[in-house]
Amino acid sequence: MKLIMNRLKQFFVACLAGISLTACVPESVNNGGSALAGKWMLQTMNGAAPKAPLSLDVNTDDGSVRGFSGCNRFFARAQMTGETQLRVSKIGSTKKLCSDGAMMNTERAYLNALKGVSSYSISGNKLSLSGSAGNLVFTK
């Protein structure tokens, strides 16, 4: 009986240790979607390099997405489903006008592409977003 109790106690301690260690492991191991977290810089939009540093900052804790779209700041909500599906919605943006008309066009295209995103993939430090309005490739 004593032996059984000792084994139970050891098992209990081991379980607690295991749970606490598990909780300290980076989330990207437990949740593949968290690999999205961080600041990404746009490298290409539909194959073309942008003329300004367009960015995407993903917070997987609260699902917020923020960034710079060339002229304005934007904020949005991201919803990840499974390992590859991603939706970006409620894209809010400040209301400044860029004197550079081409940059305003780029900004609109970028925000439209984000709005149309349906899937993502990560390979190394490269993030690819694909959707109805185009493909975006970022790096960290």
Partner: peptide, 11 residues
């Protein structure tokens, strides 16, 4: 940066 969970910290 709003990406507070960017690697390493875990829970």
């Amino acid at each position: 940066s709003s990406s507070v969970s960017a690697g390493g910290g875990g829970n």
